[in-house]
Amino acid sequence: MALTTKRALAASLKKLLGKSTLDHITIKDIVEDCEVNRQTFYYHFHDIYDLMEWIFWDDVSYLAPNDGETVDWRDGLKKAFKYVLENKSLVMNTYRSFTREQLDRYIGIAVRPFVKNVVAELSTGLNIAEIDREFVIDLFTYALSGVLLAWVEKDMPEDYENQLDKFFLVTDTSIRAALGMFHRKE
C-alpha cells in the first residue's frame, strides 16, 4: 500500500512538472492533485526534494539493468533516451530546477549501471585489477553522461538514435582497448 501511495504522489508531481518548474510547485499542489491530505505526503517524504529523489530512483530501477544482468546496452540506452523524450516537459523542468553539479551526480548514477555491465562483459578473460576496472567504468560514464546532458541541453532533438550510434561506434572499440591496456599477464 505504501508503494501505491508513493507512486500516486510521484504521478502527481510528474504531472505538475509537465507544466511548471519545481520551485513553483508546492506540497499543497501535489496533495490536491493526488486527492490525499498533507499528512499522507509527509508520512512518506520529508519534502518535495525527497519525492524527486524517490522518483529518480524508481525510474532508474525501472530503466537501468540490474547488476550482472545481460542486457544489450544499445537497446537499454535507446529505451532510456526514448523515456526521457516521452517525458520531455518533466525532464526539462527538472533539468531547470537543479544545478549542473546535482545533474552530473544523478545522471552519473543513472547511466553507470549500463556502462558497468558492458565493461563486465568485455573484461571476460582479461586479468584487470578492480581499481583499474572502476577507472574505465568512471571514464565512460562521464562520456555517456556528457552525451545525454548535451542532448537535453539542445532541447532533445529527435535524431538521438543517430547520436547514440556514433557513441556506440566509438565506445565499443575504445572500451575494449582501454581494458586491454590494464590487462596483466600472469
Binding site: 499528512q39 499522507t40 509527509y42 508520512y43 512518506h44 517524504f45 520529508h46 519534502d47
Partner: peptide, 12 residues
C-alpha cells in the same frame, strides 16, 4: 500513530 510518524518524517 500515522500523524506522529508523518510529523517526525517531515521535521527530520
Amino acid at each position: 500513530k500515522d500523524d506522529v510518524i508523518a510529523l517526525c518524517n517531515k521535521h527530520s
